[in-house]
Design a protein around this nucleic acid. Structure first.
Length: 532
DNA sequence: AGTCCTCACCGG
DNA sequence: AACTCCGGTGAGGACT
């Protein structure tokens, strides 16, 4: 064993190393990137620990943007109630503070034991693939943060002026919002604050209309002159508060928007981001995402990712046949089982994946079950497991969190039991509590599909990262089933080909030999908004 | 003054 | 047609 005084020099001096094993990519890799050093592969011990603990059923708490060791010191961390923070800390192997170092021989022992724990997994090969893929994802996350999404602040400002109007000197609402608020008040015949739901509900009540909430879809069913300006206000208010001038000041520097990506930030393995709401950029704001001079954005969206993943993991012969072509899956599905009605076919399939409880999807589910019995049985079995309190796994082995038993005293801050009958309750989170078996069933039903899709996406990113390595092109954005690559115009064609290849390669590696295809819709554009 | 909760929007 | 799955974010207001 030897001590190296300088991380960057130590890594740079060993180009022959095939894979770096380290405690935390998020802690180490940004320092390397800052010095211009990239590594090909790594093994993130702390991330693997989370995945292994989950697989072993020893993780009752979710990982998230606020998980200790990930986002210490961020505002989100402080938002978590103290009782929950304690519960999270209890399941952690490592000290959450980056400043507390793990002894080197301790790390080696943990790594060696982790290798043995992979062997004991239900599918050791898949489990090794999962931890390797997520480690690759950690590299991608750090590199994307460093590269940043090209963002034109001037275009964004023009857009805000156009949508919201000028700001008044004293602060407060911009002109357009103030006008809409006046229109709302005029329609009610009294002063009403459109940003206060309680005020709006009261105003409608006085007008003789009872509303349960002020959600947009509910308001739109009401016939009242206040509805139109109210809905318009809510849309613009959202842009003003979440993506307005202060967002611009907080998050855009030197023509780049740099969110912090957290691979595996959700229980299902989807990524989250921290800061700037990077995964919720409104469509209109995407006009501000503009490629550099002479460069292009290659925007690629995986087509019907979740149905294709369901075909691959359930091995349903009929659904694999439908998903075995690159063209629109729902059209083929409707030709087979829904006499050409694409919308019904789509709703039925999504309803099966989401565990729909009412509506048209339920009727069409019967048709789906007749034609694609193994696919429906796959998600039904996952739902049954959840209802009975068992764990479910994604294809590669990411495991649903343990249902938390109701009644334990360290649960302060966790949502309480949902009401009988499975009604939707805002704030109730089925993944974390066991109060409602049916809600838990919907969660596990969706988990196996959404999570396996996240498995695939991770492998796709890793494959894409490898093929971009020799180019100037950079991955600059990733959102569940969508990637953006920023590249010189001349590389756009090669990048597009690389993305398509990565999709099918990820399918083969994740799911083994399968006829299922994983095509992308791609667009080479100068502005993100032009991709759709 | 700081913490916590609710509401409602955005995205997939 | 209805609000089912996974999330982040900010504002307002009640509370300590």
């Amino acid at each position: 064993m030897r001590r190296e005084p300088d991380l960057v020099a130590a890594v740079r001096a060993r180009p022959e190393v095939a894979r770096w094993v380290w405690r935390s990519t998020a802690e180490v890799y940004p320092r390397l990137l800052a010095a211009g050093v990239r590594v090909e592969r790594c093994y993130d011990v702390e991330d693997a620990e989370q995945l292994l603990l989950g697989h072993e059923g020893r993780l009752g708490e979710p990982r998230g943007a606020a998980a200790p060791g990930r986002a210490c010191g961020t505002p989100r961390y402080r938002r978590i109630p103290a009782a929950r923070r304690r519960a999270r800390l209890a399941g952690l192997l490592f000290e959450p503070r980056p400043s507390v170092s793990v002894p080197f021989d301790g790390l080696l022992a943990v790594y060696a034991e982790q290798l043995r724990r992979h062997d004991r997994a239900g599918h050791p090969g898949r489990m090794r693939l999962l931890t390797a893929a997520e480690s690759a994802g950690m590299l991608v996350a750090a590199e994307m943060h460093r590269a940043g999404l090209p963002w034109r602040a001037d275009v964004h400002r023009d857009l805000l002026n156009e949508l919201l109007g000028e700001r008044y000197a004293g602060g407060g609402e911009p002109r357009r919002l103030a006008e809409l608020a006046d229109e709302v008040s005029a329609a009610f015949g009294r002063r009403v604050r459109p940003d206060l739901p309680a005020d709006v509900v009261k105003a409608f009540a006085q007008a003789g209309i009872r509303v349960r909430s002020t959600r947009r879809w509910e308001l739109e069913e009401i016939d009242h002159p206040a509805v139109k300006p109210l809905v318009a206000y809510k849309k613009l208010y959202r842009i003003w508060t979440a993506h307005g001038w202060s967002w611009l000041a907080d998050w855009v520097r030197d023509g780049r928007f740099r969110p912090e990506y957290l691979p595996g930030g959700t229980v299902s393995g989807r990524w989250t981001t921290s800061g700037g709401g990077a995964l919720q950029i409104p469509k209109v704001i995407r006009r501000a995402v503009v490629a550099d001079e002479g460069w292009r954005l290659v925007v690629a969206d995986a087509d019907q990712m979740e149905p294709r993943v369901l075909a691959a993991i359930s091995r349903d012969p009929g659904l694999m046949e439908v998903a075995g072509h690159p063209d629109d899956l729902y059209t083929r599905l409707s030709d087979r089982a829904f006499s050409g009605d694409r919308e019904h076919a789509k709703l039925a399939l999504l309803g099966a994946i989401y565990g729909q409880t009412s509506g048209d999807g339920l009727k069409n589910l019967a048709a789906l079950r007749r034609r694609f019995p193994r696919a429906v049985a796959y998600v039904d079995e996952a739902a049954k497991a959840g209802e009975e309190g068992r764990l479910v796994r994604t294809w590669l082995g990411r495991t649903s969190p343990q249902a938390v038993d109701a009644g334990e005293d360290d649960e302060a801050g966790l949502p309480q039991e949902a009401p009988e009958g499975g009604e939707f309750t805002p704030g109730y989170t089925p993944g974390y509590a066991s109060g409602n078996a049916r809600a838990r069933g919907r969660f596990t039903r969706n988990f196996v599909v959404q999570g396996s899709a996240a498995d695939w996406a991770l492998l796709m990113l890793a494959a894409l990262r490898r093929s971009l390595a020799g180019m100037r092109a950079e991955l600059v954005f990733f959102q569940h089933d969508e990637v953006i690559v920023h590249c010189p115009e001349g590389e756009a064609e090669a990048v597009t080909a690389a993305i398509r290849a990565a999709g099918d390669e990820a399918g083969r590696i994740a799911f083994g030999p399968t006829p299922v295809r994983f095509p992308f819709t791609t667009a080479t554009v100068e502005r993100y908004a032009d991709a759709k």
